[in-house]
Structure formats: structure tokens, C-alpha cells
Nucleic acid binder design. Sequence first.
DNA 1: CTTAGCACTCTAGCGCATCGACTGCTAATA
DNA 2: TATTAGCAGTCGATGCGCTAGAGTGCTAAG
Lengths: 348, 348
Amino acid sequence: MRREDLTTREERILSAIIETYIRSARPVSSGAVVRRGSLKLSSATVRNVMRSLEDRGLIEQPHTSAGRVPADRGYRYYVDRLMGPSVVSNSDQAQIRAGISVLGGRDVAIVVTEVSRMLSEVCKQLAVGLEPAVESGVMERVELVHLEEGRCLVVVGLRSGQTRSSLFKCTESMSESDVAAATGLLNDWLDGLSIAEASQLLGRKLKDKDCPFRDLIRAIHDQWDRIFHLHDSERVHYEGARYILRNPEFAGDASLLGEILDSEEALADLVRRPGSREVVVTIGHENRRRKMAGVSLIVGSYRVGETVGRIGVIGPTRMQYRRLVGVVDQFSRLLDDLFSSSHWPEAR
Amino acid sequence: MRREDLTTREERILSAIIETYIRSARPVSSGAVVRRGSLKLSSATVRNVMRSLEDRGLIEQPHTSAGRVPADRGYRYYVDRLMGPSVVSNSDQAQIRAGISVLGGRDVAIVVTEVSRMLSEVCKQLAVGLEPAVESGVMERVELVHLEEGRCLVVVGLRSGQTRSSLFKCTESMSESDVAAATGLLNDWLDGLSIAEASQLLGRKLKDKDCPFRDLIRAIHDQWDRIFHLHDSERVHYEGARYILRNPEFAGDASLLGEILDSEEALADLVRRPGSREVVVTIGHENRRRKMAGVSLIVGSYRVGETVGRIGVIGPTRMQYRRLVGVVDQFSRLLDDLFSSSHWPEAR
DNA sequence: CTTAGCACTCTAGCGCATCGACTGCTAATA
DNA sequence: TATTAGCAGTCGATGCGCTAGAGTGCTAAG
């Protein structure tokens, strides 16, 4: 038995405190726990248990003669061991499925933005979506298209189904057949390489003075980063900022709100975590940044081909963990499905 | 002389009140105006003028024995007639140019997002970017690319330089030459049409039972909306929400903040305005939505080919109109330049 | 027309008393 | 021994009165 383990009665009371607090946002008194009904105890007994929970750092008292408020460790215990499996209500289910279903075949950036928006609406919290780092994706096909006026379009398709394209000027002298030949050459070279490997390979080829289509390939190589690289900040999409101030914790003090809105770095942190399939809950001080005390994250991951992206919600530690973990998980799974290739739209 | 016209002295005092208030965020007293130095008047005289300005609805008193605060009409008079030409400081200039210069050739959605971010940083306000409605763009070139496993990529290039692409499954039986033939056919049909016209034309062609490549063309037609249509909400990018709560007007009451964060509709309103080249300032109650009292918008427009997009900032009516109008204008002009075709990157 | 002077008004801030919600402790109870 | 009833004590929230200070509006003089 771990030192942290609580008796059944203690666990029940902790659950009662947390669940009541999540609803009311006000310190929970011993009387309130008793009134809740599920325990047959006097308020005095509950008070004794509360004191013990407080000694272990699971709950705390804003001041003497106030009720108790869950501490970060209390939420952690609740999330890990008490809240039980998170089930998603039928109406949430339906809303999520309907929303996702119309996004098939659209660009990843748009899908992530829209999913963040839906997530924020379902959760009534600030939601965040992180696009996968396309750099680690694997090339499938390169296509050059010669437009008039010496302008050229390069389209790169990845195995994941993502495509990127970029325009550039090229020397006027290229004939249609030249373009076709260059296209074939590029595909021979690049098929199956990652974006980063492809860039290196193009660099090596350019060192050879006899490299065919050298100007063209140099132009593509020069643009490679422009085509594929996104700064962290460009990959992050926030939606639903309006929900954060519906939380009463912001009534007096807006600094917590500031932390949330500035929390882009917190997301960057999450990027570096191993890409577990599970939904990850980060509570208050568990965030690396000191100022993020008071803020929790619930983050899930989804795969696009070989790459991994994330979606999640950010809010005060007083969150509906049970429900929201389920919702985030549901969204993650459906995104996985959406991006698996069988879901590209079919021609009739 | 219009009824609204003020004497020079009145105008000076109005300017002094507004500029002092913009800096201090606190009601401006007659003494404060005198202390400012530029007028040689006693506070009593200033008080008389203030009363007259108040009678005309240009300023107001939060309560007796308080100083004066600009009213929406006062800001309007100031913006239209007093603030003078908005010059952009050299450091702002440099920052803006540097930021824009690295965006050449990138996708419009990314450019708009990044420009919104820069705008919010330069202005220290919530910034918003609206992508142009690509539906009214004009087709330049369609390209089909046949990938393995019966998957097909369609790439549509617009005259503006924007490209859109989408994957779909097609019947396995298409040979490379079939694809090339279909590409040629589509280009013959669609060159020079707008997106909407192209959709109609494809629809008409499909009615002909002998239409070549009918399955393929039906697949493309089915996806046309998916490729091009963005809901208003998908076209709007907000950045810099953190800045809005640095404004002291949100110290006590967060409802104004709520209005700002919910103001997506306000932007949708702006879409429908005629696409004037000028920067448009909308002050407080001038917004259609009643709740937006207290919130101002400064919005500029930019062209991408035949289509028009917008960028702007949103904040409390107490804004640095002079500086921000200049900054928004500068961004708009540089975006115009960026999207004019001569700025596509050149191959060396 | 401008200004000095003065009476008046209203807010912000402080201290104080009260009220009520809770706790913590103790002693009685099962 | 575990539980509970009872009660004293603590602390925030609320409301009230007071004061200081900033700023106005008015009047009469320059």
C-alpha cells in the first residue's frame, strides 16, 4: 500500500469535495459534503477527514473558517484514481462525429483549426490544436507545372496525404518536355525520403556541376524550407478564447487569464513529450512554467502519416476533467481515423 | 460651416483631452489640460469650453466633480479632422518591412496569420486578419496528378498565385495519358473563368452523357466546394488576445473583453463593406451590434488578384488612433505589394 | 471675454461594527 | 474506539459613517 493511498471513506469525501467544487467554484464546507447525501456521516466526522486530507496536501483552506478547495495534488489523485472511465455523452458524441465528418480531404491546417473550434465549443474552454511537424513526413510524389510567363508551380505530395505547393519564377526556356523530364528525375531521387533527407539530397546533387536542370533544382532547393518549415507559432491554433473568462476564477484577477493567453510556450513543451496514445492531463504546478500554476491542460495526440499532432483544452485547474478527458480522447481518435488514408473521398 | 464645426480653440482642447486620455486612461481635468502647456488659458476658461464640448456630445463626465472622458463622437471628430496624417515611425517601418519580406510566396492563409500576429505585436492590440473570399478568384490552370493506388491529386492555380489542391480516389483504370488528356481538357474549359463560373460549367458538362472522363470530372465537381469554400469563420484569424487585457478598462469589468473576443460577427460585417482602399475606423457605438459599445476597429484592405481581404486591430475605444491607422495602412500596402505577382520568388 | 475665488459635489479610502459561515476542539455517546 | 453534538473562536463579506482630495460650476471682478 503506497503511502498516498486513502481509505475508501477518504476517497469518497475527496471526490465529493472535488466534484462539488468543480460545479460551484466556491470552497466546499463539511456541511456541503454531508448535504450532498451519498455519505451517512456527521459534518464533524467529515471535518476530521478533511483535516487529514489537508495534511496530505490534497486539499487546502483559503483561510481559517472557510471551506476546502482542491489542491493540485488532490486533482491529480482524482484524475488518476477516482474519476473513473470518462464516458462521452451521446449528444457530445453525435456533435463531434457530425463536425468531423465534413472535414475529410481538407488541408491539415484547416482541419486542425476547425477541430480546435469544435473542441472549444463542446468543452466550453479555450482549445488548442497543434499541426504535426510536416518536416518528418515522407515524400510520395513531386510534380512540376509550367505556367505561362516563366512561372512554375511545384507540388509536393506526402504519404500522409498532405500536399504543399509553391510558385516560383523559372527560366523561360524550359519546354513542356523539359519540365516532364525534370519531374521524373525528382521523383526518382526523392521517393520515400523524409523532407529533411530530401533537402540534403538536393543539396548534394547541386554540388555536381553537371547536375541536370541545375537552375531549376537550385530554385526548388532554395525554397524547400519555405515550403515545409513552420515555426512552432505557426503550427499552433487557438480557438475559443471567449470561454476562458466565463470562469469565475477571473472575476477579480485577470493575471491567470494572462497566463493562459500567453501559454503558447506551454504547448511547445508538450510537443517534445513522447507521443503516447493516451490523453495527457497536466495540472497546475505540474507545468514547467511557474506562472502556470492555476492552469491545467488536457491534451491528446493524433497521427497524420508518420507525424504526430496534438489537440487539447486549456483552462483553470477547476475543470470538468472526467468529461473533458473523454471529449479530447474522442476527438483524437476521430482525427486519427480521418487522416488514415482510407478516408480520402472517393470518386463515384 | 457645418453645425458641428468647432473653433480652433475648442479643437485644441478636444485634442488635448483625447490625447491625454489615450495616455492616462483617466478622466482629464481642466487643470490637466492647462498643465499640458500648449494653451495659454486658465483652467476656468478650459472648463467653460469643456462644458460646451460636452453639450455637443463630444466628451462626457463620468460623474459631477470628475474630469472629462472622450465620447464616441469626440473620437470620431478627432479621427476625421484633428489627428492629422498618421506617420509610421522608422522603427515601426523597419519592423513591418522585415516581417513581411520573409513571407513571399507562402500560402495566403499563412501570410494572413503571420501578418495578424505581427500587427498585434506592433500595435499591442488584438489583431485580426481576414482571408479574401477565394470564390471570386479567376482560374489560371488545373493540373491532375495520378498517384499510385488509384489516388489522384487535383491542383488548381489561380491568377492571383494562390493554389488549392485536393486528393481523391479515382478509378484505377486511368492511364498516365488519360490523365494528361483530362488535364488538357479541363484547362481548355476553365481558363479565365471564376471559381463559381467554373463550377457551373462543370455541372453543365456533366449533364451530357457523352462527356469524356465523366467519372473523373464528376469527382472534381463534387469536391469543388470542399476545395474552395471557406466559411466566414474559417477565413478569420485572430492573434494577440493577450494584449486586450493589458488595457486598464478591463480592470473591474470583463464584459467588454467578452464582447471583443466574441466579435467575429463584427468582422463578418466588415466583409460586406465596399472595398475602399482607405483604412476604415469604426468607433464604439458605430458598430452595428449594440454590445460593441466601447470597442473600436481599425481595418485596412489588401488585394490578392481579383479578391479583397482585410486586416485590422480591435481594442477599446481608447486607442492610439493616429499611430495605429498608420500601422494598419502600412501593413495593407505592403500586403498589396506582396501579393502582386512581381513578388513571387525568382529562381536564380 | 477671461479669470480668480469659492462653495459645492462626488469618489476613494479608511476604520469600525455586525453578520454569518465554518472550523476546531472537547466532552458526551454508541 | 469511533462518532457525534455542542460551542467557542476565526475570518471574510457587508454596510455605514467619516474624511480628504480632486474637480466642477458659478459669480463677480478685471
